[in-house]
Design a protein around this nucleic acid. Structure first.
Lengths: 239, 239
DNA sequence: ATTGTCCGTCTTGCATGCATGAAGACGACT
DNA sequence: AGTCGTCTTCATGCATGCAAGACGGACAAT
């Protein structure tokens, strides 16, 4: 099976992961040669990977000036959240009608885990399970294209969400909202599932002000290029 | 001004246009050398362009086997329509609240043109104006990210929509639905605008059966590779 | 006749090399 | 001293070259 993966694809995935995980912060310069060395290839596959990431909005390539991790300003982040809300809302709507019994069981299991971890109190651990929770719903939509689109937008936002859950009480609120969504899903109520999910994602009400005030956290830089240091493995962050 | 555009970007746009306009049908093989000749470059920028298009879902690159224009089966098309409906719905919702007076005037003007062309009766001419109509609403959302996302999904679907309007009465129905949307927009009713737009895009009710039955029109091929003939300019279609 | 194997050809994936254009340094001039 | 202009340096954009893998055909065996 193991479908052969080209180096450019591997690198694209690795870089996307770096960006999503916050190892490559917005504004960081992505030097072709450095990356080539880091991955042990020539510049060619590096360039192809960067082009792919650029096409998906993860990096920006300014002709003759190199590639940088896209830095979104507050406005753009809010714009993406607006999109995210309807996409996840649609996932929930479709999932409410289409999830199989097995998938519903999965959902409940993951949700229970979320509740447990929320009580435990570590936001980062909860974050991981929270992601799984949403993934289950993406899959439950039985719409592959939607699944991919939603994940892509989610990934683009991820550098800006990491700290969101570190706010006091945000985790508790999150699981509570999950709980409502789960109920609607299990009852098979598409309208309610969609609307609850939209509200869960959307930065309406209290979420907004909190978020914006804490925003610009991951160096909402736009052009500063603290050149991604070439130490193989993980880029060191320059401050 | 004229921001410098690299060849790979030019080619990517040109190829995307070929695909959207139906000049490169799904399943058509995109040979690197042929394209390189056609654009008067080497294979390198061609490859970069193809990688970009692949990242956006327009072409599929099978390692060691080359690139083909993505062929969507009925199911995938319907999946994309589900996405399209909520994205355009969101555009309408936001536009209802955010359009400036100038944009509203624009909307009315384009809508009037649509009505005129609909009466004239040529579906292809109407199609172009219809596209502009929707573009005005994308812009009216004042959400750039949404605008781009929506346009991208629209473009991915375009090979499959071209003939949609050739159905008897479809044009008339389209303008009627536009009319309802316009009214909601001008009245500033976000909920109604969104819901009407969703219905307009969505293939619910009669739309669905008609569409599906006429579907698979643009050679819903998946692997057949009628090798894109190299005649510079436009690819000739093999049957 | 059909199927399986082998081989030739061709395309892709990647490495390397070169020219162009941009950023930064240095010096001259106001 | 500050500003402007030139020059140097370097990274990018693209061309070219080479090796590995895939497709197709021929041939042999059943």
């Amino acid at each position: 099976m193991a479908l052969p993966e080209t180096r450019s694809e591997q690198m694209a995935r690795a870089l996307e992961d770096d960006i999503c995980a916050g190892r490559a912060l917005p504004g960081v310069r992505l030097d072709e040669q450095v990356l080539a060395q880091r991955f042990g290839t020539s510049r060619t596959p590096v360039r192809e990977a960067l082009k792919m990431l650029a096409a998906q909005g993860f990096v920006e390539i300014r002709p003759r000036q190199g590639a940088v991790v896209v830095g979104l300003d507050v406005r753009q982040v809010l714009e993406l959240f607006e999109i995210m809300a309807v996409l996840e809302g649609l996932c929930a709507r479709l999932a409410a009608r289409r999830m199989t019994p097995a998938e519903r069981a999965d959902l409940m299991a993951v949700h229970a885990e979320c509740q447990r971890l929320a009580a435990a109190g570590d936001p980062d651990v909860y974050y991981a399970m929270n992601t799984r929770f949403h993934e289950v719903i993406y899959a439950g939509s039985h719409n592959r294209q939607l699944e991919e689109e939603t994940r892509r937008v989610r990934n683009r936002l991820s550098p800006y969400r990491r700290n969101q859950l570190h706010q006091l009480g945000r985790v508790a609120k999150s699981v509570q909202e999950h709980d409502d969504v789960v109920r609607a899903l299990l009852e098979g109520d598409p309208d309610r599932a969609e609307s609850l999910m939209r509200r869960h994602i959307g930065i309406q009400g209290d979420g907004l002000s909190d978020f914006v005030s804490n925003m610009s956290t991951p160096q909402a830089v736009s052009n500063p290029q603290p050149a991604l240091a070439g130490t193989l493995g993980r880029p060191t962050i320059v401050r």
